[in-house]
Design a protein around this nucleic acid. Structure first.
Length: 565
RNA sequence: CGGGGUAUAGCUCAGUCUGGUAGAGCGUUGCGUUUGGGACGCAAAAGUCGGGGGUUCGAAUCCCUCUGCCCCGACCA
């Protein structure tokens, strides 16, 4: 590509609304332009990168035996009523009406449409297993879109759906998709981890997220240094402590803590470690308030709490007035000692192993010291309630856990029969019996990968694309061709030669001064740069610099080709 | 949905407190000089000051109202 014939639109100003590196750099490089909140136009430059990602995803899906198709982005309400998701999906579902007042949604995902397709197309077990996929625009009406295309409302997604006669076949395709995803992110040149994920409200047997590692990631992941265990922190199990609960040694004693409400304040005031305190959260259960007790230095895990039988899927902290009515005190002074019998006390494994602990006194301005389970406070049940922390033992017993941040770019999921059952998607088996199919679904956020890659790989000058994602592999920069025609000719010849060698080359023939040219090429992250100038012509070699190097070096054309292969 | 902020040239912003009829930098256009890390000079184009209503002789500025956008939180996955 000759840059003079392309539309490159870089900007020097740092966009005011962009908070994270990838968003800033995509705007500055002119890859995207915002149309409205969460809606972005992909410029020619941005689209080149997006297509690179898309093509790798497509190649690996095909290699893994999946079959590409394309479904409509607008979907009729009737299908969503069959699965109950017209209501359940909530505000993220963009609902629209046509001129006849018929209701539709803009598809946030395609389980309903593919299951409808499958129940019409698939009649026999002989057609199974089969794995359909598409690469298509999705719309989710996010409450708060942010970070550019990282969390946009409209985005490009690869979604695949597999159909099976039984769980065993599903597990096989699931494993194949896991391998395909591993190949995709490896080819893209990203540092990533596959982590166990919570299966959420849908249930199902297995689920893994593929997380690109980046400090700015919105997800926390835990991984072991002694095995390949890795999990989203929502899912990572906190093992029970190895030691038994020590015997009670201290007497229960009420102490005044007139203004100390938080664990940190109480621990400071009483000169104890937060580890020796118990914090008590009152949440709205299915049947009245429920107390959740954690060690003072630990944090509640909302997903784990949601799985408790006593709590709804999404638990909500009780309001101050509810708490006052139930316990006679306010948040900050609640504790398990002397709570009304009607309130179940669910205790985290680590909190349950404490003895002689500090906890709220259930009276304004007071706490207890020397509190002990069973002697002073009930335990209705012991459960894993907390987020794992750095240094916890790995749940598989090998090594200890470390924490990292990640950007979720892929998710594989064994759905089981939930959708097929709701929509009566059946095939006839080898006994002539009608059987509900099992399903898997496998998503990749194609547009999000572009942002995630930048988040992981950038410097002060701009983007550091992995070779596989770069809009071009190499740029030929021409210095002052207007006054020195031989330079222009040499650059043109080099550019043509690169094209003949099958290299995706860019010729910067815009006639800019060197500073502006170099700055642009570094901003848009071209991995390799060759400069053609009067100075270089005299030397007879090429002046080469890799994007991440700080010094140029002289190389031959053959050397250059070797670097590009 | 709650809280906070913001809206002025293509972009980034000043001007609003204290009302007097529109500014800068970057970008764009033309001419000239320049050409190894975002050059310089001269000239030029470009804004219903987010929309509507009100106060006033006069509103970007004061008041009311609507809307967009951003941030924090809740929510969602």
């Amino acid at each position: 590509m000759r840059l003079s014939q392309f539309h490159l639109a870089t900007v020097k100003e740092i966009p005011a609304d962009a908070e994270i590196a990838s968003h800033r750099l995509m705007l500055r490089a002119g890859m995207i332009r915002k149309l409205a909140s969460g809606l972005y136009t992909w410029s020619p430059l941005g689209l080149r990168v997006l297509r690179k990602v898309e093509n790798i995803v497509r190649e690996e899906m095909n290699r893994a035996g999946a079959i590409e198709m394309l479904m409509p982005s607008v979907q009729p309400r009737e299908l969503w009523d069959e699965t109950g998701r017209w209501q359940k999906f909530g505000g993220q579902l963009l609902k629209i009406k046509d001129r006849k007042q018929q209701e539709f949604c803009y598809g946030p995902t395609h389980e309903e449409v593919i299951t409808d397709f499958a129940r019409n197309e698939l009649k026999s077990y002989k057609q199974l297993p089969v794995n359909f996929y598409q690469i298509q625009t999705k719309f989710r009406d996010e409450i708060r879109p942010r970070f550019g295309v990282m969390r946009a409302r409209e985005f490009l997604m690869k979604d695949a759906y597999s159909f099976h006669l039984g769980a065993e076949s599903l597990a096989e395709t699931y494993a194949a998709m896991y391998q395909a995803y591993t190949r995709i992110f490896t080819r893209l040149g990203l540092r990533f981890r596959a982590v166990q994920a919570d299966t959420g409200a849908i249930g199902g047997n297995a689920s893994h997220e593929f997380q690109v590692l980046a400090d700015s990631g919105e997800d926390a992941i835990a991984f072991s240094d002694g095995s390949d265990y890795a999990a989203n922190i929502e899912k990572a199990e906190a093992l029970a402590p190895a030691h038994e609960r020590p015997a009670a040694a201290a007497a229960l004693q009420r102490v005044d803590t007139p203004t100390q409400k938080t664990i940190a304040e109480v621990a400071d005031f009483l000169l104890v470690s937060p580890r020796q305190c118990v914090k008590t959260l009152l949440v709205r259960g299915r049947d009245g308030l429920v107390a959740l007790c954690l060690r003072g230095d630990h944090e509640i895990n909302a997903v784990k709490a949601g799985k408790l039988a006593e709590l709804p899927d999404e638990s909500v902290l009780a309001g101050e007035e509810e708490i006052l009515a139930a316990t006679g005190t306010r948040p900050g002074f609640i504790g398990p000692v002397g709570l009304p019998d009607a309130i179940p006390v669910i205790v985290d494994r680590d909190a349950a192993a404490l003895a002689d602990f500090v906890c709220g006194g259930n009276a304004d301005g007071s706490h207890y010291t020397g509190a002990n389970w069973l002697r002073d406070a009930r335990i209705s049940r012991i459960a894993d309630l907390r987020n794992v922390v750095e240094g916890d033992l790995s749940p598989d017993g090998k090594g200890v856990l470390h924490l990292a941040r990640g950007i979720e770019v892929g998710h594989v999921f064994q759905l089981g029969q939930t959708y097929a059952e709701a929509m009566k998607a059946t095939v006839v088996d080898d006994q002539g019996q009608s059987r509900v199919m099992a399903m898997g679904c496998y998503g990749i956020g194609v547009s999000r990968i572009v942002a995630a890659a930048i988040e992981q790989r950038h410097d002060d000058a701009g983007i550091l694309w992995p070779d596989a994602m770069a809009p071009w592999r190499v740029v030929v920069c021409v210095i002052n061709p207007k006054n020195i025609p031989a330079v222009g000719k040499a650059a043109e010849a080099l550019y043509q030669w690169l094209l003949r060698q099958g290299v995706e080359a860019l010729l910067d023939d815009r006639g800019l001064r060197p500073g502006g040219m170099f700055a642009d090429m570094e901003l848009i992250g071209i991995p390799h740069r060759v400069v053609v100038s009067e100075r270089g012509l005299a030397a007879g070699t090429l002046e080469y610099r890799a994007r991440q190097e700080t010094e140029s070096r002289s190389i031959s054309q053959d050397d250059l080709l070797a670097l590009l292969r």
